[in-house]
Structures are given as C-alpha cells and as structure tokens.
Design a protein around this nucleic acid. Structure first.
Lengths: 281, 281
DNA sequence: TGGGCTCCTTCCGGTGGCCGGAAGCTCGAT
DNA sequence: ATCGAGCTTCCGGCCACCGGAAGGAGCCCA
C-alpha cells in the first residue's frame, strides 16, 4: 500500500515533505533550517532543498530572523478543509451569541481518531485561561467536548479508547474505564456533558453535541467557566440551545423547528445504536 | 534557485505534491482522483500514488463519495501560520465587540503580494451578503481592507499595483491609477478607507489599519454594511477604535494608552517613508 | 586576533526511487 | 450488452534525488 522505498530505507519524497511540515507544532511555530532537518530526521542538504521549494511555493515563509514558519498559502489551502470551514461558517453566529451571553470561553471541536481537535475558539481576554487552542488536540476522556464526541462515536472507537490508556490531566480526570462508561451513558441520556476540573482544577466545561444532516454527531460545542463560578447548571440550556441551532443550520432533521405550541422534546440521544453507535471513520 | 528538473522537464516531486494541493480552491473543495490529476497536470497513476500518500498522512481525506477533500491534519498545520493564528487570537475580542455593536460583517485581512487575503470574518446570517470568505483573495484596489493595506504597503508594491492592470468588480471600482493614488493618500491621511459599491453595488465597507510592534501595518480591519444604511460615518470611530485596540494588543507603540487627560492623537500615518514605504516581502 | 562553534549554502557523481504506459476492475448509464 | 469514466495495480527503465563534503557567514569566548 505505502509506496515505501523498495526494501527498508527512508520515506518517499512526499513523506519527507510531510515530515518537514510535521516538524512544526504548537510548541514549534518557528524553526531554523537545521532545526527542521533535525526534527524531520533529514540530512541538512536534503532539508535545504525541500524547504527551499516549499518556501518558494508559499507553504513556508522565512522570517527576518532567518527562521521558517508556516506560510499563508498553506493556511489558505488548509482553510478549505470541510470540517473546518463549512462547519465554522455556519456555527459562528451561534458561537457569537453564546460568547456574548457568557463572556467566557466558547469552543467548537471535532473528533479525529482518538483525540479532540479544536476548530474554533472564542475567548474573552479576562476569562479563565484554558489550555486549548485552535488547531490543538486533547484526549477524548478529559474534556467536555471530548466526552460528548466519544459518547456518540462509533462503538469501535469507544471500545478502543476505553481499552487504551486513559491519560489524566488532573487528579479529577476520569481514568477508570467503568466510570467513563457510566459517564458516557449519562451524556447520551442528558445530551450534555459537564466536566469539572478535568483539564485544570480551576475550570469547568459544559458541552453539547452538534448533529449533521444524517443525524450523526459531527462536532461538539462547549463553554468553559471558572469552577468557582455560579451554579453551572444555569448555562446548560444556553449551550444546548446553541448546539441545537447549529445542528439545524447543518440540516439535522431532529433539530427542525416544530410548529408553535407543540412541546419540542430535547434532542436527547437514546442509546439507540442507530443514532450514535455504528459507522464512522 | 529552483531545483527544477535538470534541463526542462516537469516539476520536482515536491512541486507535484504542491500542485495537487493547488488543485483545491474555493470553487473546488472536493475533487475526484482524475479531477486532481487533470488540474495538476499529472498522469493518473502518478496522481494516484501521491494522493494516496497524502491521504494516509491526513493532508487529504477521502469522503464517502470517493472524492478527496483537504484533510484536518493539513488544516491543523496551516493553523500554525503566524499571520493567521497569532493575529487572529489577539484580534478576536475586538472583532467580537465590533460585530456585537454592528451586527453586520466584520473582516480581518492581510496582504499577500498584490492581493488581500481574508484571515477572519464574522457575519450575521441576515447581514448583507459579501463575497469574501475566510482564506479567500481579492484585489487590493477594490476593497476597503485592500486600499488600507495598499496605502501602507512598501512603495515598490504600490507602484507595481498602480502600474499593473486594475481589475474592476463593479462600475464603481477605482481603476484609474491617478484617482487611486489620490485615494491612497487620503487613506494615509485619514487612517481610514470608505469603499462604497466597489465589490458589489449594495455594500459599503469601512476599513482601518492594524499595526504591529514595529509600527508597520500588518493587517486591516473592516466592517461591511448595506450601501443604503445609515450614514456610514457613524461607524468610523468604532472601526478606528477596534483597529487601534488590536494594534495595542500586538504591541504597537503608537497605540499605547496615554496618561489620562492627555489628548491621544489618532495614529494617522503621515507619508513618512519610514513608516510605510520601505521593506517588505 | 584566533579558534571554535552553529548555521547556512552550493556542488556533483552514483544509484535507487519515481515515472507513467498498459492492462484490468467497478461502477452506472444507454 | 456495450460503452465510458473513473479507479487500482504492476513493473522496467531512466533520471532526478540524495547527501557527503567543502566553503562561507556570523557569533561568542579567550
């Protein structure tokens, strides 16, 4: 399958190029040429050639300090990712409202494999400091959005995560598979996850699922507030409403507006496997 | 300079990979394998191999319909671009406020070469429809943010643009070099650009410059409102204030808070070449 | 001033990875 | 059935890529 080099040797040219891109990360936004070569495991002259070509194209930019950074052109192409742009565009107005109402941190995330990836984040400068950042990753078991995404993930993913090691970010992070399983069932039942002190001891997050047109949960939305703040329950309805609004904008049938006068049942997911337990990537 | 293939033949492997990425664009978010091959000018089997490798890494994702889209992993790397992330993070709170105050379209853009690239956009669903989109490009002469970025661009860039063909999006777009030159001088003097009906006849934008720590203009901020709306002048102060706030957050000395009681001169740029006329990309 | 360090840039010959034509496959439409 | 469009796999030949080596630029310390 992989066009790996004949017998055993290094990666293909494409692999090397991707390796160079991988050298950059949240903790390495700017790298020297030799830094890139080191991180990517390439000889300096090879790195020099490839990096030069990437810079010419605009995938990398060379700063005045001689160091390389990710270029605008690459960002531009990346912005075409449907799970970022399409989702973001439609979710923004709702995130806005939620942000305006709480003046705290509002986050939108999707699942990629066994991790959460934050797609959008609105943060008030004076709100609780949160670890997450746009483009950042976090474990599924330790965050509000993660628990929601996991609760509605395909069964295979859930089992994988439950089986694998569950990393703890604080003493309060859930690492016991049985407890996590109970929590996930509760999340499915309630349609909301409340996570207190699992990322850091000072903050608490309230998360709800966002559904796409085929009812699958495609994203999760959360608000992070100080643990010591007012009763968090008060923001649950707002989070649920925003998530439902986004689901509707995405075309989820269960989030359709009902005729006035009819009580709208919350889109709480049952454990119905038809809704959250099969399919997925 | 370019490691072009020896004598004359096709691009290098790296070039081919980048060509594949270039095949995607705002009007081509999802492509079939053969579509990619066609757009990138590659034989099918070559495209197949390279695309496969890109998909394995996560730069591309294959949808259920068999078509390829930009992958989350590439988006993630692109999000590390300093002109996107660093700028965005600090600008967001101010964009929020502006959005909240106007409930229209708020945009943040940077210059790349002879074009504007939109880095962030907040749009109310019921606001005027605008053409721009996050990651999209527009000509410098036809937009509010573009005029601001051009007005403060290095002299060489200005001359290039003034010399080159000036594309018109509507009959009201400025295409006369002399007129544009006058407008740019006015923008420098006023510290704000007001663009009526230049992108489409129904909307008007008010833009102001954002400065970095070395006083150079690094971005531009605008609000787009209906042409027919209330006197646009009323939003000028809000736009200026937000731009100044972002400049301060970025560390621009001219945007520092002055001691109370001292009248703060607007950071209007003179035509002083030391501020906007030399250096650049 | 000189030595030692890190980082960057250029050069060039050998070779192994890449190229891409061709054949076969799976669809869906006619 | 027949066609066509798109996808996947295979494999031999050739040439583009690799990377060691040499040289330059800048910095710090003695």
């Amino acid at each position: 399958m992989s066009p790996s080099r004949g017998g055993q040797s290094g990666p293909s040219v494409t692999g090397r190029v991707l390796g160079i891109l991988s050298a950059f990360g949240p903790s390495a936004e700017a790298l020297t040429l030799s830094g890139i070569a080191r991180a990517a495991g390439l000889p300096l002259s090879t790195a020099h050639r490839l990096v030069g070509e990437l810079a010419t194209w605009g995938a990398l930019e060379r700063g005045e300090d001689g160091r390389y950074r990710i270029g605008l052109r690459l960002w531009e192409v990346g912005a075409l990712a449907p799970r970022s742009l399409g989702l973001r565009e439609r979710a923004m107005p709702y995130l806005e409202d939620l942000y305006e109402a709480t003046r705290q941190n509002v986050q939108l995330a999707v699942r990629d494999g066994h991790e959460v990836v934050y797609v959008e984040r609105l943060a008030h400068p004076e709100a609780v400091r949160v670890f997450s950042r746009v483009g950042g990753r976090m474990p599924l078991n330790a965050t509000g959005v993660g628990q929601v995404l996991l609760a509605f993930a395909p069964a295979a993913v859930q089992e994988d995560v439950l089986a694998g090691p569950l990393t703890a970010l604080t003493p309060r992070t859930i690492t016991d598979p049985h407890e996590l399983r109970r929590v996930l069932a509760a999340v499915r039942r309630e349609g909301v996850a409340v996570c207190d002190g699992m990322v850091d001891l000072l903050s608490l997050s309230v998360a709800a699922p966002v559904r796409g047109e085929d009812e699958r949960v495609v994203a999760s939305l959360s608000v992070v507030v100080p643990s010591t703040g007012a009763e968090p329950r008060t923001i649950v309805p707002a989070v649920r409403a925003a998530a439902r609004g986004i689901s509707r904008a995405l075309g989820a049938p269960s989030a359709r507006r009902r005729p006035a006068g009819v009580i709208t049942p919350l889109p709480t997911a049952t454990d119905d496997p038809a809704l959250g337990a099969e399919r997925g990537a």
